[in-house]
Structure formats: C-alpha cells, structure tokens
Simulated scan of single mutants.
Amino acid sequence: MIYEKFLPGALASGQYRPAPEPEIVGHGLQLIPDALERQRKGVSARKLVVTLGQQ
C-alpha cells in the first residue's frame, strides 16, 4: 500500500521528501568509477546518483 498508493502522490506533491539529498554525478556507465572514487574519498549526508538509460 505504501509504495503503490501513498508514496507516488506524496513525492509528487512534496509532502514527502527523500533523504539524504541526491547529488547527481552525471549520466552514463562511464561515470560510475568517478562516483565510486568520490564515495571512497568521503561523502557526508548525500547520495551519489549516476543516471542510466535514455535521457
């Protein structure tokens, strides 16, 4: 129920905000090593995101 009914609407309306804030590294598999290196160096209160697929 939470994932199918509540969460999509709550995210769209801003009632629910995911945490921690995402930090977009970029788009494409070639950026995964960069994201991993940034993670190894230390990232505090952020999630690193590499987007895949069509943009």
Rank of each mutant, 00 (worst) to 15 (best):
L36G: 07
I32K: 10
P20Q: 01
L36C: 15
L7A: 14
G26Y: 01
E21C: 01
Q54E: 14
E37Y: 07
V25I: 15
G26H: 05
A35E: 10
Q54R: 11
V50K: 04
P33S: 13
P20N: 06
Y16G: 00
K41P: 01
R46W: 00
Q55K: 13
A12C: 00
E37L: 14
P20Y: 02
S44P: 00
Q15S: 08
L11Q: 08
L36D: 09
R17H: 02
Q54L: 04
S13K: 09
K41Q: 15
A35Q: 08
L31H: 10
A35G: 13
I2P: 04
K47E: 11
A35D: 03
Q39V: 07
R40S: 14
K47P: 04
I2F: 13
P8G: 05
P22G: 02
V43Y: 03
M1N: 05
G9E: 13
R38Q: 15
L7M: 14
M1W: 03
G26T: 05
G14F: 00
R46I: 00
R38N: 12
E23R: 13
P18C: 00
D34P: 03
Q30Y: 10
V49E: 06
Y16W: 08
K5I: 14
Q55V: 11
P20M: 01
Q55G: 11
F6V: 14
L52E: 08
I2H: 09
G28M: 05
G42E: 13
I24R: 05
G53N: 08
L7S: 08
A19R: 12
K41S: 13
H27W: 06
G9I: 02
Y16C: 05
A10Y: 07
L52D: 00
K5G: 07
L31W: 06
G26Q: 04
R40P: 00
G53L: 09
G26C: 06
K47G: 01
G14W: 00
Q54A: 11
F6Q: 03
F6N: 01
A45I: 00
R17L: 06
K47C: 04
Q15W: 02
R46K: 15
M1D: 06
V49D: 06
E4H: 11
G26D: 01
F6E: 06
V49H: 07
G42H: 09
G42Y: 11
P33G: 13
Y16L: 12
